[in-house]
């Protein structure tokens, strides 16, 4: 997921209350996230800090409040997570891992800060690229998360995403990665974490995203996968991740971005989904939850808002589905 600049599209004046996005509330919710140091939850989620920053920053950009968080502060924090190896950890003192390296690169790209990276860490871009490239399995083409070896198509997508943002795709064997993704395809058109694993919307996003970056969407069984993705929409308008599971706002992103990449967004009811996402807002304190009435968090906030952006909700910036 990255941002593209889109033209502003009017406001929300005259919108019925159930169709309103509480932009100001969400902005202050995201601004408040780093001030909650007197809550245990803040400390228990330190391992997600860099991801959280990326999610919050992306949500603010989509909401048209790109500068609601201080740019210098963000940049200082991101670079404080960078290891000598070229990998990023979740926070200072946390080990390097693909998941945070991707977030680190995505934040740098969002802030257009690769120049500052080079100033402060000479050769930084190459270093990060090499860290990522070093995690590719030369035999299968897939990627590990770190030196401890867990492999997953999430890491493969993350690697291609970050490398393409840095213009360093040539550091890895893209063709081999593509073949690995292809070997994860199932009869239903979907993809799993590894060959033979059950199709899952999150993994579908990572695999279709990786193939989009590699320019190989021709390998996707687009009719079958489009059909499977469209069946994720339930009667209440929300989307689930797998057959016969409950709806969750985050699938608004995983499912819809995949459908957008396949040109099949019109295979679900966008209006019903918009209403479902909006019902998941906390109208008082801001933020979005997995389902109406639940506790909000920044993860569901960004994926709900990104979903609304794909649905062309008025006033939101346009999101790139990859």
């Amino acid at each position: 997921m990255s941002l593209v600049s889109g033209p502003g599209r009017g406001g929300m004046a005259g919108m019925p209350v159930e169709m309103q996005l509480f932009v100001d509330k969400h902005v202050s919710y995201i601004q408040s996230l780093d001030t909650r140091k007197d809550e245990l939850e803040y400390w228990l989620t330190e391992h997600l800090r860099l991801n959280g920053l990326y999610w919050g920053l992306t949500a603010l950009h989509l909401l048209g409040h790109a500068h609601a968080l201080p740019r210098t502060g963000i940049l200082d924090f991101v670079l404080s997570c960078l290891h000598e190896s070229g990998g990023f950890g979740a926070a200072p003192g946390h080990d390097a891992h693909m998941l945070y390296t991707v977030s680190g690169v995505q934040i740098l790209a969002t802030l257009d800060a690769f120049g500052e990276l080079e100033e402060r860490v000479p050769g930084g871009r190459q270093k990060i690229g090499k860290f990522i490239a070093g995690l590719q399995d030369p035999e299968t083409g897939t990627f590990a998360g770190d030196e401890w070896g867990e492999q997953d198509t999430r890491f493969l997508y993350g690697a291609l995403n970050a490398l393409s943002l840095m213009g360093l795709l040539e550091l890895v064997d893209v063709e081999k990665a593509v073949q690995h993704v292809h070997s994860c395809a199932n009869f239903d058109g979907g993809y799993g974490t590894s060959p033979g694993a059950e199709s899952h919307s999150g993994q579908v996003f990572t695999c279709v995203g990786a193939l989009t970056i590699a320019g190989r969407l021709d390998l996707v069984n687009q009719e079958k996968l489009g059909a499977w993705l469209s069946e994720r929409q339930l009667k209440n308008g929300g989307l689930n991740g797998r057959p016969e599971k409950k709806e969750d706002v985050c699938y608004s992103w995983w499912v819809m971005s995949s459908m957008a990449m396949l040109g099949k967004l019109h295979w679900i009811d966008g209006d019903r989904l918009t209403r479902f996402i909006l019902q998941c807002q906390d109208p008082e304190l801001g933020g979005l939850a997995d389902r109406p009435g639940d506790m909000v968090d920044v993860f569901h906030t960004v994926f709900g808002i990104a979903g609304l952006s794909l649905l062309k909700y008025p006033g939101l910036e346009e999101v790139d589905p990859v």
């Binding site: 939850e41 989620t45 997600l48 959280g52 969750d248 985050c250 906390d282 008082e284 304190l285 939850a289 997995d290 389902r291 009435g293 639940d294 506790m295 909000v296 968090d297 920044v298 993860f299 569901h300």
Partner: peptide, 13 residues
């Protein structure tokens, strides 16, 4: 940070 299925309750805590 990613909370699932935990009710928000009524009003601010």
């Amino acid at each position: 940070m990613a909370s699932h299925g935990i009710s928000r309750g009524a009003g601010p805590v």
